[in-house]
Design a protein around this nucleic acid. Structure first.
Lengths: 160, 160
DNA sequence: TTATTAAAAAGTGGCGAAAAATGGTTGCGG
DNA sequence: CCGCAACCATTTTTCGCCACTTTTTAATAA
């Protein structure tokens, strides 16, 4: 099972919007030749990067939606719109679509620091600024969030 | 079953942010070659260190969360973000990511004293300063905390 | 019982290989 | 013809390894 880990700080190449940390590349080893799929996160101003095989799962889930249901179609569009298959260049760098960078508030020209974090089967790409805000959110009530999630999981277990 | 114990005081290597347990290594013996996973604690300014097999359980639990549920995603991010796989070097030292050390308020340069405590299946890493403050908190009401926990355990037992 | 010695573990520093950042150049497409 | 992107070469830094010093612990002998 894929278990991407680590918090990697990196810069966008000032020339083109290129990038990519090496330790993640090692963890991806056998998966990376299939390419990566980048997309906007639905909930936060960051990008999600899936190894292609993981994205295939997403795609498979989407294919189960009804073609004739407006809500399903809207959901599919919201979720998949913008997803792009990208591959590493010979230096192990990524060329990210500028529209996606813009969404994640990553500025190509100036504040080009960003953070890639491994989250098991996927990765997230944040601008340094947004990332710090998430990390340093002191008031965040993790306890009650955890409780909500726990209830969901229990309910799920009962339904099965 | 793994049962890590002890309170170990140690120093960071002044060169790089290196460090090492010692007697803990003996307790880890057969687990340590798989590596260790370090992460920020959710509630306190300290780091949590899991033997890899223990972390694998966490990762497996996380993979059951819903990709399309905002709370689940937030939970996963808060919990897993920053988790890093590290291995002991040939001298039995650990190279801890500086971003994590910073979170735990462990200063590489000056006050480089820290404390590692065994907590059964995981360990905690504290700066000496923070550790003292938490441990020596005289006003802490252990009685009512214990009572709350006891209730939780009982309720859990009834639900099963 | 204490002291001395030996062996192992702990702590320190430097060196070298490998990877990552940078800059320049060429080729392709619009 | 211009611009962007892929490729290549060079410099710089990181970090993993190795060798050396110091401390601790244990054992044996006085």
């Amino acid at each position: 099972m894929l278990n991407l880990l680590g918090e990697h700080h990196c810069k966008l190449d000032p020339k083109g919007p290129l990038l990519f940390p090496g330790k993640l590349r090692k963890q991806l080893e056998h998966h990376v030749h299939h390419g990566l799929v980048v997309n906007r996160d639905i909930f936060s101003k960051c990008l999600v990067i899936y190894p292609k095989p993981e994205w295939d799962k997403v795609n498979e889930e989407m294919s189960r939606l009804s073609r004739y249901n407006q809500k399903h179609q809207l959901f599919q569009r919201k979720f998949m719109k913008g997803a792009t298959l990208i591959e590493l260049d010979s230096n192990g760098r990524l060329l990210l679509p500028s529209a996606l960078l813009e969404y994640a508030e990553i500025d190509i020209d100036e504040n080009n620091e960003c953070v890639i974090t491994g989250l098991g089967e996927k990765m997230e790409l944040w601008s340094s600024k947004n990332h710090d805000e998430v990390i340093l959110d002191e008031d965040f009530d993790f306890g009650s969030l955890a409780e909500d999630v726990r209830k969901d999981i229990e309910r799920n277990a009962q339904n099965q």
